[in-house]
């Protein structure tokens, strides 16, 4: 293409003509894309956490005191009956039994060294039947059906317990997206304004171009390239910010002993291979679209 060198030189000259504005435009773009990227990472992490939890969650059928007492292997008729009925249910994928002693051992492991241990006796823990479902969202049906059976203390759908947590995480994510879109709007307006200013400063040049018969390629594409460079540089800065954020904030936050097993880590590949290319494409496309609309609306072709 003949005019490629020309439009490129003009675009770079345009960015350098008003360095302050160009930098402001890139930073605003970077911040909005950074927030968008953080939002995307949050979604990915929340989804993974959800997967991790839901695969481990089950419906727990806790047995009452008489049925729990002294039964290491679900040998009592009541327990066996319940287990058989659960296994026969078409919703159920599998049933495992945890005796009162096994539950107490697990309790000891989890709370090793903590004062709560002094308060707990094996007798205060129930034996449970852990029920995994073919469709994990159908816990309600089991709760309904088995809560009132003889020998059952209560039935708890663990999924219900964590649902509130995920609802909360979901709203955090939505808030991140909301902020990102307000910020993105600011970036759009700034890009649009910069193009208008840029076109105004170059009006003599563009006027002469039009008079001698330059096509839109020469009169408008430099402004578009200017905008796209801004978008891409903004995306690269945003990626840099996310990498720093991961190394110095997320990694430290998630490395705590309690939380490290609970939430999967955010990998460098999530930032560089998943979020970064998305941000670059989004940055470039949005900047180009803004540039195009601005030229259409405010600048004579």
């Amino acid at each position: 293409m003949n005019g490629l060198g020309f439009v490129w030189r003009e675009a770079v000259a345009g960015l350098r003509r008003n360095v302050t504005m160009s930098v402001a435009m890139m930073l605003t773009t970077a911040i909005s894309l950074g927030m968008l990227g953080a939002g995307l990472l949050a979604v990915r992490t929340i989804d993974r956490t959800q997967d991790l939890y839901y695969s481990q969650l089950a419906v727990q059928v806790a047995l009452d005191e008489p049925t729990s007492a002294g039964d290491p292997d679900c040998g009592s008729p009541v327990c066996r009956g319940l287990r058989d009925q659960l296994q026969a249910d078409p919703l159920v994928a599998g049933v495992t039994y945890e005796s009162r002693d096994a539950a107490f051992q697990r309790f000891l492991r989890i709370y090793a060294g903590q004062s709560i241990l002094q308060l707990v006796r094996p007798q205060s823990l129930p034996a449970t039947l852990r029920v995994t479902l073919k469709d994990p969202t159908r816990g309600d049906a089991i709760v309904q059906e088995f809560s009132t059976r003889p020998g059952v203390r209560n039935v708890v759908d663990q999924r219900r317990l964590v649902e509130d947590l995920f609802t909360f995480l979901g709203s955090v994510r939505n808030a991140a997206f909301g902020l990102a879109s307000v910020q993105a709007l600011a970036a759009l307006l700034l890009i649009s304004n910069t193009i208008q200013v840029s076109a105004f400063t170059r009006r003599t040049e563009v006027g002469i171009m039009r008079l001698v018969g330059a096509t839109r390629w020469y009169t408008q594409v430099p402004f578009l390239i200017e905008a796209v460079i801004t978008g891409v540089v903004g995306a690269i800065l945003a990626t840099g910010g996310l990498v720093l954020g991961k190394l110095f904030f997320i990694d430290r936050l998630l490395s705590g002993r309690l939380i490290s097993n609970a939430i999967p880590a955010v990998g460098m590949s999530d930032v560089l291979l998943f979020v970064a290319p998305l941000l670059i494409v989004i940055g470039a496309v949005i900047a180009a679209a803004t540039g195009y609309v601005t030229l259409r609306l405010y600048v004579r072709s």
């Binding site: 003949n2 005019g3 020309f6 002469i208 171009m209 001698v212 018969g213 330059a214 096509t215 020469y218 009169t219």
Partner: peptide, 10 residues
Amino acid sequence: AFALEVTGKS
């Protein structure tokens, strides 16, 4: 040269 450049001359 500008007039030639922006009208795509070699």
